[in-house]
């Protein structure tokens, strides 16, 4: 690496991107491991909640996975905008690489929520505004993945998928504000609410660490997936050259 500062669009050059991102991977992996480990240690050492008891610890997994699932969609939609407007091939790769990860985080959010809902609410699942809009997020991810495999022409697939990702981004504010707009079984916003967080600092710290840890985990896996996709394309090109 040279000492020259790297402009963001210079990274759109796959060669440059591979050179710059290679040393980032191990550091990101280390930061992810440390943050999640610390978060888990704190999460298992908080006192129980006054009404939910030890069940409240599901929050330390459920809330960060749900946040990460939504952030992943936001990043996928952003990469799709760059792909449509600036036509950077790396943006296509980045958007496509985010979808399966986002789908997994969304599924984990739904599963952990279900495991939390049964003992506290008395139901595994209800069709309220928050749960339904979050299920729609999973369907958007799955639709995106199915659509990206439905075309033989990669460029066309990227265009159509980008359109789906951008239109689907409308669901993100719906998920966020569902608990304010409608009556729901899911409780209201605990952190970003008028009058400050409704969570005791003893719960807030592990939640905060886990949220950062899951975000780093997503970024790490995303970076690895983008790098793998670029390498795959290179290998493919080498094989084509070798056979002709």
């Amino acid at each position: 690496m040279t000492g020259k500062p790297v402009h963001i669009f210079e990274l759109a050059n796959p060669k440059r991107f591979m050179d710059v991102s290679a040393p980032v991977v191990p550091w990101l992996a280390a930061a992810t491991t440390v943050t999640i480990t610390l978060g888990l240690i704190l999460a298992f050492n908080t006192p129980p909640d006054y009404q939910q008891g030890d069940t409240v610890r599901i929050m330390f997994i459920h809330v960060p996975t749900a946040w990460t699932a939504m952030m992943a969609y936001g990043l996928m939609a952003l990469a799709s905008v760059v792909s449509l407007v600036n036509r950077h091939p790396l943006a296509d790769v980045a958007a496509k690489a985010a979808a399966p990860l986002g789908a997994v985080f969304t599924a984990l959010g739904l599963i952990t929520g279900s495991l939390w809902g049964r003992p506290m609410w008395g139901a595994w699942w209800v069709w309220d505004g928050r749960l339904t809009s979050f299920l729609l997020l999973l369907l958007l991810y799955l639709g995106y993945i199915a659509l990206s495999d439905a075309f033989s022409d990669e460029t066309r697939a990227a265009r159509v998928c980008a359109i789906l990702a951008i239109v689907g981004a409308v669901n993100l504010p719906i998920i966020e504000f569902s608990v304010q707009w409608w009556t729901t079984l899911h409780q209201g916003e605990s952190i970003l609410r008028r009058g400050g967080p409704a969570i005791s600092p003893v719960f807030l710290w592990p939640l905060f660490l886990m949220a950062i840890g899951f975000t780093l985990l997503f970024l790490l896996l995303w970076l690895i997936r983008i790098r793998t996709a670029v390498l795959k394309r290179r290998t493919w090109n080498l094989m084509l050259r070798a056979t002709t």
């Binding site: 006192p47 909640d49 006054y50 409240v56 506290m120 008395g122 209201g188 605990s190 609410r193 005791s200």
Partner: peptide, 17 residues
Amino acid sequence: DQVLAKHDEKYMPPEVV
């Protein structure tokens, strides 16, 4: 036919309560 509990968005240890 069915009764579900809706808890609020507050989380705190028993001592604080």
